[in-house]
Simulated assay, not measured.
Amino acid sequence: MSQADTLTRSVWPIRSLGLFRSELVTVLRRWRTLALLAVLAGVPVLIGIAVRIETGDGGSAGGGGGGGPAFVALITNNGLFLVFASLAATLPFFLPMAIGVVAGDAVAGEANAGTLRYLLVAPAGRTRLLVSKYASVLAFCLIGTLVVAVSALVTGALLFPLGDVTLLSGTTVPFSEGLLRALLVALVVAASLTGIAALGLFISTLTNSGIAAMATTVGLLITVQIVDTIPQLHAVQPYLFPHYWLSFADLVRDPVYWDEMRSNFQLQALYVAVFGSAAWARFTTRDILA
Rank of each mutant, 00 (worst) to 15 (best):
S136W: 02
L91T: 13
N78K: 13
L146D: 03
G66Q: 13
A61G: 06
I143P: 00
A108M: 04
L80M: 15
E54S: 04
I49W: 12
G68V: 11
G64M: 12
I49T: 07
I75R: 02
A85Y: 03
G79I: 05
G59W: 11
S132R: 02
I49F: 11
G63L: 12
V131I: 10
A157P: 01
M97A: 12
V83N: 08
V107H: 03
R126N: 15
T155P: 01
P123F: 07
M97V: 11
F93K: 10
V72F: 07
A70Q: 15
A88W: 10
A88L: 13
P96A: 15
A103N: 05
L87Q: 10
T76R: 10
I75D: 01
T90D: 11
P123R: 10
L95D: 01
L95W: 00
A103L: 06
F84S: 09
V102G: 01
L74C: 01
N77M: 12
I49L: 13
V147G: 04
F81E: 02
E110C: 02
T145W: 01
I53Y: 12
L119Y: 07
T155H: 08
A85M: 12
A50H: 08
P123H: 12
A89C: 11
G68T: 06
A103F: 00
N78W: 15
L116H: 03
L87P: 02
L74V: 05
S86Q: 11
V72H: 02
L130E: 10
L129W: 02
I49Q: 13
A149E: 06
A152C: 10
T76F: 03
L82P: 00
A98D: 06
A50I: 01
F81R: 05
N112H: 13
L130Q: 06
L116Y: 00
A88N: 14
L95H: 03
L142K: 06
G68H: 12
L80E: 12
L74E: 06
G65L: 12
L130V: 09
L142E: 06
G59I: 09
A152R: 05
G48R: 05
D105Q: 09
E54P: 00
L153K: 02
V101K: 00
G48W: 01
G144T: 03
L116C: 04
V101T: 01
V154N: 11
Y134R: 08
F140E: 03
G79N: 10
